[in-house]
Design a binder for these strands. Structure first.
Lengths: 105, 105
DNA sequence: TCAATAGTCCCATATTTCCGAACTATTGAA
DNA sequence: TTCAATAGTTCGGAAATATGGGACTATTGA
């Protein structure tokens, strides 16, 4: 089980979070990740918020989310497990994520 | 006194708002507009959150904010007056703007 | 050892952003 | 009126960024 590189909580920036969530696809991904508390593989077969999207594009979206500090990715065997960093985000920007997601969809 | 074109409140989209505010300069502009309840001309001489920025770039930022439904622009003589659409935004996405701005800067 | 699966990396194309320069509109003065 | 000054917009090219196809890597299971 490998941990990928993630920004420390205090290094998460507001602009980064907003930029990451300003893409409708990424917003849907985060929403889907939260709704099924359990993981979601990068292919989004479980959450399926991204039907006809190229693998490379999807990979890029997850990278943006990861670098913005929105999700934590762990590599388990052949697949990646993405979890929203709810606690970290709430520590850094109290209430923000909830407030944004409340209006998603 | 001329009203420029603005989206109706119900046409304001979450992605649009987030995209508009995901630019640090625009976030600063909105914050500055709110802090001095009174107008701010497009040159930001009053708010001055944008020192060394080309006129055309600034004009573009205000257009983005306007089209996203974040500010209302009225043309008074030779200058433009920009006001944050607080009430409209709060009607469309209750609490969102406040939540985002609480963490700005 | 080999095939299958899950992602990443690289590259070409497409889109967006930035800024200078030219242009438009309004005002105020001569 | 006419002219200069001020405030923004529009245009066009350069720079930055996003997209997706295809090749590549890593892990698993047969």
């Amino acid at each position: 089980m490998v941990q990928l590189v993630h920004p420390a909580t205090e290094d998460i920036s507001l602009a980064g979070v907003l930029a990451a969530l300003s893409d409708p696809m990424r917003l849907r991904i985060v929403k889907a990740l939260l709704e099924q508390a359990d993981c979601v593989s990068m292919s989004c077969t479980a959450a399926a918020p991204c039907p006809a999207m190229a693998k490379s594009t999807l990979s890029n979206h997850f990278r943006v989310l990861r670098e913005a500090g929105l999700v934590r990715t762990t590599k388990k065997g052949v697949e990646h497990r993405n979890v929203v960093r709810e606690a970290d985000l709430d520590a850094r920007f109290p209430g923000l994520l909830k407030s944004i997601l409340a209006h998603a969809e």
